[in-house]
Write a protein that binds this DNA or RNA. Structure first.
Lengths: 123, 123
DNA sequence: ATATTTGTTATACAGAAATTATAACAAAAT
DNA sequence: ATTTTGTTATAATTTCTGTATAACAAATAT
């Protein structure tokens, strides 16, 4: 899995990292049980500080995507707390859909766009 | 329209403000042509600095939700740049949908959740 | 046994972003 | 003439982000 950081983005590096790892899982590029690089290795690889990677990993653990083990390092371990995930999804969707409504994008179009973006994912 | 700021949120105040105003428009609580409070009035009202409100208004103007007029103050003025709005929506959706996929929420469920959140809006 | 690798924690520093505090300006309204 | 509007400027403070070192405990590898 390739990680690309945009150092000119207004999005923090550890947020970009977290999102890309989640993308990697959703795209089936990495799977449940797979090892992630160690914080030091990934930091070296990208050219950033260890603590920035550690921050991303800590969040991913807290959000139920990985487990951190002192012997095995970071391992993909998906926790399916569906109800919680759905609530968080709704919160995120509200802002996005409010914008869509303001921009005159109708319900049918929104569903079409959703389908389109969903089809970008593999697995 | 009531604006509520969560001072403990990790979301910046001016971002919360922007989102809530967009929500207000989507919910038909405020309409095209309506006046928003002046930067000073709203700042006083919420208990924050004038510049924080000004930042939110400047972004809303830049994103095509309001127009700023020295005589009339801030006025809702929706600019329907649909193509641009759709592209931005897709970008935002990618992260959200990646999370949904990781949490085993399937396509049908996602569409249902979308419909559910859309029905929260009035107008 | 020893050295290495793992996540974890602590501390310190620099830079950027967010927020506040004043202040002043020009244009328009009252 | 006074007030209100957005706008701009400057400075200070606080918080967030990212880096730099360093050390620790547990496990692995040699």
């Amino acid at each position: 899995m390739i990680v690309t950081i945009d150092f000119n983005s207004n999005e923090a590096i550890y947020i970009q990292l977290r999102n890309q790892i989640i993308m990697g899982i959703a795209n089936a590029q990495i799977h449940d049980g797979d090892n992630l690089p160690s914080v030091r290795e990934l930091a070296d690889n990208i050219g950033i500080n260890m603590h920035t990677v550690n921050k991303a990993y800590t969040i991913l653990k807290q959000e139920g995507y990985i487990k951190l083990d002192r012997r095995k390092g970071a391992v993909i371990a998906l926790d399916y707390d569906k109800l919680r995930a759905i609530e968080e999804m709704k919160t995120d969707l509200r802002t996005i859909l409010a914008r869509a409504i303001c921009k005159n994008i109708n319900e049918e179009e929104i569903h079409e766009i959703l389908t389109e973006v969903l089809n970008e994912f593999e697995g």
